[in-house]
C-alpha cells in the first residue's frame, strides 16, 4: 500500500513563499544599509563587540581632539619662549657693552634703561596667555604669574605655583603639558629674571658688571635647557597623534569586519531567493491547475 500524501499542498507552499520572502527582505535590508547587523538579534555577539569597538573609537577620537588642543597651546608657549631668546641675547650684549670702562655714567644709565625695557618684555612673555589662561603659572592658570616688584631680589613676584598638569593622550599614556613659571624664569640653577635684575643694579651702580654678565649668560643657558621641554612635548604629541590615527583606522576596519555586509554574497542570496520565489510560484500554479481523475470521468 502506498503512503497517503496530503492532498492539500497550499499550506506548504504558503510557508515556503513566506520563508523566501523573509530571505528577500533580509537581503534587501542588508543591501540598503550596507551592514549585516541591523538589529541586535542579527548577531548578538557581533553587536556586543561593536559596542566595545564604538567606545574605543570615541575614546580615540577624544584623545585625538585633546592632542590637537594641546598642540596649539604648546606651540603658543614654545614660540613665546623662542621670542625670549632674542631679547636675552640683546641683554647679554648690553651687559658686555656696559663692562667697557671707557663708558660715561650717562651711557651706563642709558644701557640700564634699555635693560629695564628688556626686563619688562621678559615679564610680559612670562605672562603669556592662551584661551584666557596663563601658560607659565603652574596650575594657578587664572592668576597673572609675574608682577614687577623692585624691592624683590629678582625684581618680580611669582604668584603662580610649581605644579605640573598631566593630560592623558592615549590609553595609560600621560604627558606633562607645562613647565611652571618659577622653574623657567626663576630657576635656582640660573635665574633669568633674577640675573637681569642684578645686571641692571650692577650697571646702575657700576659695580660687578662682568660677574653679573656671566651670571646672565649662565641663566640664559639654563633657560634654554628648561624651554626645550616644549619642543620635546610637541614631538611626543605628534608621534602619539600618528599612532592614534592608525589605531582609529584599525578600529574602523575591525568594525567593518564585524558588521559590513558582504555585498557579493548578499546579492547572490538575493537573486537565489528571487529565482526560488518565482520558481515556486510557477510550480504551484501548474500543480494547482493539474487535472484530477474526476476531470476524466465523463
Amino acid at each position: 500500500m502506498t503512503v497517503r500524501v496530503s492532498p492539500n499542498i497550499v499550506p506548504d507552499t504558503l510557508s515556503g513563499l513566506n520563508g523566501l520572502k523573509q530571505q528577500l527582505n533580509t537581503a534587501d535590508l542588508e543591501l540598503a544599509s550596507g551592514r549585516s547587523i541591523n538589529s541586535p538579534s542579527d548577531n548578538p555577539s557581533g553587536i556586543a563587540a561593536l559596542i566595545v569597538n564604538h567606545a574605543a573609537q570615541s575614546a580615540t577620537d577624544t584623545f585625538e581632539r585633546n592632542i590637537g588642543n594641546l598642540q596649539s597651546t604648546l606651540q603658543i608657549a614654545d614660540s613665546a619662549l623662542n621670542s625670549a631668546v632674542g631679547v636675552i641675547n640683546q641683554a647679554i650684549s648690553l651687559g658686555v657693552q656696559a663692562g667697557n670702562s671707557s663708558l660715561s655714567a650717562g651711557d651706563r644709565q642709558a644701557i640700564a634703561q634699555q635693560l629695564q625695557g628688556i626686563q619688562q618684555q621678559l615679564v610680559s612673555i612670562a605672562n603669556t596667555r592662551s584661551g584666557g589662561t596663563y601658560l607659565f603659572a603652574g596650575t594657578q592658570v587664572e592668576t597673572q604669574p609675574f608682577t614687577l616688584n623692585s624691592s624683590s631680589g629678582s625684581g618680580v613676584n611669582y604668584n603662580g605655583n610649581s605644579s605640573v598638569t598631566q593630560v592623558e593622550i592615549a590609553n595609560g599614556q600621560s604627558v606633562n603639558i607645562n613647565v611652571p613659571g618659577d622653574q623657567l624664569f626663576l630657576n635656582p640653577a640660573g635665574s633669568l629674571l633674577g640675573s637681569i635684575n642684578q645686571l641692571i643694579t650692577a650697571v646702575q651702580t657700576n659695580t660687578g658688571i662682568p660677574a653679573a654678565s656671566d651670571a646672565l649668560g649662565q641663566a640664559a643657558s639654563e633657560f634654554d635647557t628648561q624651554r626645550s621641554f616644549y619642543g620635546t612635548a610637541l614631538n611626543q604629541l605628534q608621534s602619539t597623534g600618528t599612532f592614534l590615527s592608525s589605531q582609529n583606522l584599525q578600529l574602523t576596519s575591525q568594525e567593518n569586519n564585524i558588521d559590513a555586509a558582504d555585498i557579493a554574497k548578499v546579492t547572490t542570496t538575493f537573486s537565489q531567493a528571487e529565482v526560488a520565489y518565482t520558481a515556486l510560484l510557477e510550480a504551484e500554479g501548474k500543480v494547482l491547475s493539474l487535472p484530477n481523475l474526476i476531470s476524466f470521468l465523463q
Partner: peptide, 12 residues
C-alpha cells in the same frame, strides 16, 4: 554590551 547581547540573543 552585555545587556544588548542578552536582548539580541533572546530575540534570536
Amino acid at each position: 554590551s552585555g545587556i544588548v547581547f542578552q536582548v539580541g540573543n533572546d530575540a534570536s
